[in-house]
Design a protein around this nucleic acid. Structure first.
Lengths: 266, 266
DNA sequence: TGTAAATTGTTTACCTGATATACAGTATAC
DNA sequence: GTATACTGTATATCAGGTAAACAATTTACA
């Protein structure tokens, strides 16, 4: 899993440290004792803690302790906590991507992608708590981007147009993932499934959102649509799917009505 | 600015503390010395620091110091740093909303909204660093939601459908805002405007993203479209606009082809 | 085979930042 | 005028990230 052939080290050093580690570009030692720890173990331990107790429970001390080592031992493998966060983020993106099929329906494939992203947020509720520092540069993240581009392979679009659609899909996924996560959290916290996050605020908002100041929002609050009072079973899936279909329609409309391909900037 | 009439205190207490303060629901003292500080001053000071030096520079110590007070004095006004962050977030959303016009083009109005959100990210680069804890519950945030609902006032959609479109627009705005912020940051950091954030990684990615593993991403990286090498002047606005038009097309398509209105769940 | 170099895990210490607590001063209500 | 409720402050605690020095270990090479 180590790429170390004919690489221009100057260029690689521009990458954030965590990204380098994610690509397996750490230097491998020759002398000295064999390390008992490893990046993999550290990241797994951190993820395990975060899954159970949230990202705030992930301290260097805690992670090291859960592995039976001291805090500072981790610094033999990663250079900072930011590295660890980046590695956790990338590790969470290591999902199984469905194999390519001939004659696939691109709409269905895009739905699949979006749901996969949302699942990442549900499986690792801390995922959305890690701030995004830049355009993705870690391997598993890029693998997912490759997936989306695969779906669009046969589109008559230039690279910039494809990147824009990618942005559209991934941003929508992220937002939905965050909301889904919040709802999951609220259910866990509230105990009874009928106590939703929004519902806690519902009563307060009904008092505060006055029709004079919020003429358009007021009715939506009162109807309960804002806080999603009609607890539609387990998921907000219906809402997501609605927006998803709008996006797909927009893409399809563009594919059909677009002028001939231009290779220039979008 | 104080709403204190006939309010059910039990319901209001469910709100996060910062939200209560944002609504002006702090108790106002009768006895004792008149406070020299105020929530407004504190938030302004914090925002001023964050604008200049980023969110990480905002410590209670630093904020208090910039006002000529000691750290702990702030706790007479807010109960935790989280309160402060929530207030900062809401304050950044206090933007001027264009007046309602008759016969307005809803597409143009939605573009206006999205650009307004993106501007918030550009004016306050720290804005996206504040984690979203729940559905918006602070006044200025809700004011912006009211704006979007105003744009959709005449749509033949039920509340749930409108909320879904709202989600779509706000999530797209957020993602674009984050990216735009990152690019602005990179330009500032890099000094020379030709040194883009993506460009720093560009060389590295060209080595790491091998065609075997990333068959679809590889050409996009090599063409420079991924890291947006053809520095299109100042903004990535073109990219945003493209996705925006897709979204608008999708919405319009739905408005036209939708079956008669249902008042039920979406 | 033995010694030097490289590398590991540990110990200790430092620093920053959030916040609890106790105190001293001040303005208002009765 | 005095008790009360408030203000700003000083002090202290606690957590968490990380630097530096150290002892133990393993490999390379003479």
């Amino acid at each position: 899993m180590q790429n170390k052939d004919h690489l221009d080290h100057e260029a690689l050093n521009n990458l954030p440290n965590g990204a380098k580690l994610g690509w397996g570009l750490g230097k491998q030692p020759k002398r000295g004792p064999k390390g008992e720890l490893s990046i993999k173990k550290i990241v797994e331990a951190a993820i395990s803690i975060a899954d159970k107790e949230g990202l705030s429970a992930v301290s260097m001390n805690r992670v090291a302790g859960s592995l039976g080592f001291t805090t500072m031992s981790l610094y033999r493998y990663i250079s900072s906590k930011d590295d660890l966060l980046m590695l956790m983020q990338d590790a969470a993106c290591e999902i199984s991507i469905p194999p390519e099929k001939e004659d696939a329906d691109w709409r269905e494939e895009m739905r699949e992608y979006v749901h996969a992203v949302i699942d990442v947020f549900r499986i690792h509720p801390w995922y959305g708590d890690i701030p995004i520092m830049s355009v993705p540069v870690t391997p598993n993240n890029l693998q997912m981007i490759d997936w989306v581009l695969r779906i669009m392979r046969k589109f008559s679009l230039n690279d910039y147009e494809k990147m824009s659609i990618l942005l559209l899909l991934s941003s929508y996924s992220r937002s939905c993932g965050l909301i889904q996560r919040d709802m999951d959290r609220a259910i866990i916290a509230g105990g009874s499934p009928s106590t939703f996050s929004g519902l806690d605020y519902s009563a307060a908002l009904k008092q505060l959102v006055k029709p004079e100041r919020f003429p358009n929002l007021h009715p939506v609050i009162m109807s309960g649509a804002y806080t999603d009072e009609n607890e539609s079973d387990n998921t907000v899936g219906n809402d997501f799917d609605f927006g998803m279909e709008r996006i797909l329609d927009g893409i399809e409309y563009f594919l059909v009505n677009k002028k001939p391909i231009s290779s220039d900037t979008a």
